[in-house]
Design a protein around this nucleic acid. Structure first.
Lengths: 115, 115
DNA sequence: CGCATACATTGACGTTCGTCAATATCTTGA
DNA sequence: TCAAGATATTGACGAACGTCAATGTATGCG
């Protein structure tokens, strides 16, 4: 099963109105739910937090595995989910894969929910 | 299994800093993930949207079942999840149960994520 | 009281999810 | 070219989730 690509967060943002104004469409509800689902896990929230608090705003898997307390495959899995959802960007430099927060991604969700 | 009560959203709000500043604690990550999980479902997002767009900002189960396209027990289930998470308030009037958006609930999540 | 209506609860079922051990792939350096 | 290290993928397993049919509970009305 290929990593199913989620709808880009920018598309969510372009959706008509805040959640609480007019009835959301089924398609938009599914898109937003997918994005929220990617965020709705303690390990992934901690990963986002750890990465953005890390030096230079980036971190490799090896920086994250031990402090998170999960196995390396599990960490890779969570990072992949976050990249697919558009919350992280991945850059391979040498043997290492560096992850950083995708600019504006979290703000997009935030705006969609609130006002 | 008794409806497990989630940490009140206000407590989430009081948490130290935005997600992207300092490493979030495990406890806070779990609280926030629980709240997000309650939101991360298409049916529940549509319910929130339909309720706040409904006349007087409130709706009963019977208003929601048919437009949502799910069975009455399923709708009740989703509403219970949203009430438990603090996104909805429930008021029983006669035979009907009226639901409305809990003031500031969504904004609390929104603020926690963004900026 | 007894029936109808509105909603909640229970129990079951298939699906999705989080996790790990094992293994595969890729990159660097000797 | 080979070995070592970093990351990704696969496969398996139990837990949690979304859904419904069936049933339970409570409220209002004759």
């Amino acid at each position: 099963m290929p990593t199913s690509e989620l709808i880009p967060l920018h598309d969510l943002r372009s959706c008509c109105a805040p959640l609480t104004r007019a009835p959301i469409s089924i398609e938009n509800a599914e898109s937003l739910a997918s994005s929220l689902k990617a965020l709705a896990d303690p390990a992934r929230l901690r990963l986002l937090s750890m990465i953005s608090a890390h030096a230079d705003g980036e971190a490799c898997v090896c920086d994250l595995t031990e402090p998170l307390g999960l196995s390396q495959p599990t960490v890779s899995h969570h990072l992949r989910v976050l990249v697919s959802a558009g919350f992280l960007e991945r850059e391979k430099r040498g043997t290492w894969a560096y992850f950083r927060i995708a600019d504006g991604a979290i703000a997009a969700i935030s705006e969609l929910l609130g006002r």
